[in-house]
């Protein structure tokens, strides 16, 4: 049994109530919200959470977020929540993050221990010769809560890296949705040059910041904490979500674009089961397939700097017209537009 062949789903109860959910509950209570109203409909009890025995599923966390959003009724809830999220108090994984010697180690820690540090949204790191990119993928089908989770996660990353590094890092954020009414929250919490209507939910900064040494780090403490967090993941039995595993599989086989049957076989389940699981996460196979292939295309354009023909060839499109149509469906843009778009 290896970690990489297992996963968690939206209804797997594994998020300790006193980890990330407690941060949100504390925020709501500090604004005078009644704990009963906050937990209504989530199947959770305040006393159990305080006792430390409660485990939440992602679905329960989403309904907690929905309640908090409704009761707090403020545009900055997700950002305030995000500011308090990392490095957090989530056992050895948080210690490992706190002892990171530079940004690169910190990013790798969050990504490696994402089931513990960022269970709702999967961060992924890409590097080219100028920039480091962190982009985010939905782990458990957040649906209506996706924007809240994205705002919180990006704010958490930015706040954590500024705090631990002791310097102001020039993060630039891109978001896939249109500019919201409360754009000033993005200016203050994520930076003035936040862009909207982008292809990915992504933040980037110049690559040299990855290796700047951070103060107060201890290599030994980090090493030990890392091992302890690793054994915590072993006890859980998984380190990533089903959507996450599926994304990696589809991305790695983007050239062939395997069908539903083949993918279901790879995950040792029937087609019907895979379909049902995906619809439980508010998505379907084609959407996941398109997302993976779109990301591969963007990667080839942006980071490998390939031409249209080379990208089309890599993704096994024989006909340029077909490729243009597919790209249009994935991104809403023609190949030339997308190249301009990425250059900004």
């Amino acid at each position: 049994m290896t970690l990489s062949s297992h996963w968690y789903e939206a209804d797997t109860r594994f998020i300790p109530g006193h980890y990330q959910p407690a941060t949100l509950i504390d925020l709501a209570l500090s604004r005078g919200i009644d704990s009963h109203r906050l937990l209504r409909g989530t199947g959770l009890f305040y006393d159990d959470i305080v006792a430390g025995g409660t485990r939440l599923s992602a679905q329960q966390f989403f309904s907690l977020i929905a309640n908090a959003q409704r009761l707090l009724d403020a545009d900055d809830s997700s950002f305030l929540f995000g500011q308090r999220l990392l490095p957090g108090h989530y056992g050895p994984a948080s210690h490992a993050l706190q002892q990171a010697q530079n940004l690169h180690q910190a990013l790798e820690t969050v990504i490696h221990h994402r089931a513990l540090l960022s269970p709702l949204l999967t961060p992924r790191l890409l590097l080219d010769d100028k920039y480091a990119y962190v982009y985010w993928l939905d782990s458990c089908g957040a649906q209506e809560q996706l924007r809240f989770v994205q705002e919180a996660s990006m704010t958490a990353f930015k706040a954590m890296s500024q705090w631990l590094s002791g310097e102001r890092l020039p993060w630039e954020c891109c978001l896939s949705y249109p500019e919201p009414r409360y754009v000033e929250q993005y200016w203050v919490h994520l930076g003035e040059n936040t862009q909207f209507n982008c292809q990915l939910d992504l933040m980037r900064l110049p690559r040299e910041y990855l290796t700047h040494a951070w103060p107060n780090a201890s290599a030994i403490a980090r090493q030990v904490a890392h091992q302890q967090a690793q054994s915590q993941l072993h006890d859980l039995g998984f380190s990533a979500s089903l959507l996450d595993r599926l994304y990696v599989h589809l991305r790695d086989h983007a050239q062939r674009a395997p069908g539903l049957e083949e993918v279901a076989q790879h995950f040792s389940m029937s087609q019907a089961t895979l379909k049902r699981k995906l619809s439980k996460h508010g998505t379907h196979f084609q959407a996941q397939q398109d997302q993976a292939r779109k990301h591969v295309a963007l990667y080839l354009y942006q980071i490998k700097g390939l031409s249209n023909d080379a990208v089309a060839e890599y993704l096994n499109f024989n006909d340029p017209a077909n490729f243009r149509r597919a790209l249009k469906r994935w991104t809403g843009c023609t190949p030339n537009l997308i190249r301009q778009f990425l250059r900004v």
Binding site: D75, D76, F79, Y182, E184, Q185, W187, V188, H189
Partner: peptide, 11 residues
């Protein structure tokens, strides 16, 4: 006659 508002966070 001035008007003070809180934009967001500490701004």
């Amino acid at each position: 006659h001035d008007l003070l508002c809180r934009l967001a966070g500490d701004r």
